[in-house]
Design a protein around this nucleic acid. Structure first.
Lengths: 209, 209
DNA sequence: CAAAATACTGACGCAAGTGTCATTATTCAA
DNA sequence: TTGAATAATGACACTTGCGTCAGTATTTTG
């Protein structure tokens, strides 16, 4: 917190952070385009406009960049799935609102970050890094959140009785993922609003009474 | 059809075919275990008990084996999804029967071929070979079949009006895939019958009135 | 301004894995 | 039985891309 030093050091930090970010951005672009395995570190540094060696000042290796991209994404997504004070929400109306409150931002996000959509859904599972476990853990976390909401609405009586929450949630995630993937990769001629509507309706029809 | 020659030649052919198959089997095992990119041709030939060069007498390269495995699998799966004479089937009862007739054998198949499940669901999409397009075409074919059935039952009046068939089918495929994947990879302690029951119910609840 | 610290560079050594090919083994046919 | 055809071998030359490091540039500090 010594003023001058702090300022200088802060400035350096910022620059390093910016460069780091620019490497991440370059990597996202190439990964989404060519896939993890077809992407070489040379590709990334070319896109980022830096030398080969510089890359290794900021990241351990190619895996590390990829892992960080996926980690960041998962954190962002968890944010979308988190709803505080679910216990306050009670009517069937509200249940629909909850589904839409989740799926809306989610889909907007993927529209604005198609690269990340491709990377996460197409690549991340089969890269052969340790990611598979992490991703399954992520799904489990989402499922856990979903199950909480589910059980809540079940208590309120808005939910059909005969579906196992975990299985249903897995189904739901897979389904939503597939729709988002196809929407993100191919330029399906469907508006964001329509996608939100469809996804939300599908989710609801799975569980609703 | 010259008798002696034909017999001899047939015998040779059989042997070649058997060897080919043994390479495919070895490859399936390793691919499912380590993933496409972590698998080397050396791994495959070691598993198959042949020399490096022999591999290349039977396959162009590693991609070719993988591609063939995936192609075969897609053909098998299309068989499961094909129902002749859908127009004969009319009641809601029958609609349920159709869903179960598809999901039952499908799930049995994946239970008996977990390797293929892993390969197809975890690997095939992101290998970076030309497979992505092929797989999407496969999904489209399945969706087309599904949509036919769907429209049929819609005419019969067993289906909710407000769901777009294509979107619904995509959702359904993604959902089913996710469940099968989790069931295949982790040893979830759920019986095959229960999985069939769950999947079928989820499919039905998506569309049913 | 000097010199020390920090940041960046890119050529290159190295490892991994591919696919070939000269050689050896096996099968067939006469 | 022999030699011609077919099948299999495995060592190795070659490619590719990774990660390092000795050297250069830039920034900071006193």
């Amino acid at each position: 917190m010594a003023n001058a030093t702090a300022k200088a050091s802060t400035k350096r930090e910022m620059d390093k952070e910016a460069r780091r970010q620019s490497i991440l951005d370059a990597a996202k672009k190439i990964f989404a385009d060519k896939g993890f395995h077809e992407t070489s570190v040379s590709d990334i540094v070319r896109e980022a406009g830096i030398a080969q060696g510089t890359f290794y000042l900021y990241f351990e290796d190619k895996k590390a960049v990829f892992g960080e991209i996926v980690d960041d994404l998962m954190n962002t997504l968890i944010g979308f799935f988190t709803i505080r004070d679910i216990s306050r929400i009670q009517s069937t109306q509200d249940m629909e609102a909850v589904v839409r409150r989740i799926s809306g931002p989610l889909i907007t996000f993927f529209q604005e970050n198609r690269d990340l959509g491709k990377i996460f859904i197409r690549e991340a599972m089969g890269t052969g890094l340790g990611l598979e476990k992490k991703i399954l853990a992520f799904y489990d976390r989402v499922i856990q959140l979903g199950t909480t909401y589910f059980e809540h609405f079940r208590k309120e009586g808005h939910i059909r009785k005969d579906i196992d929450a975990r299985v249903g949630m897995n189904f739901l995630i897979g389904g939503a993922q597939m729709i988002i993937y196809r929407w993100v990769t191919e330029g399906i001629d469907v508006s964001e609003a329509e996608i939100v509507h469809s996804v939300a309706n599908l989710c609801l029809s799975l569980f609703q009474d």
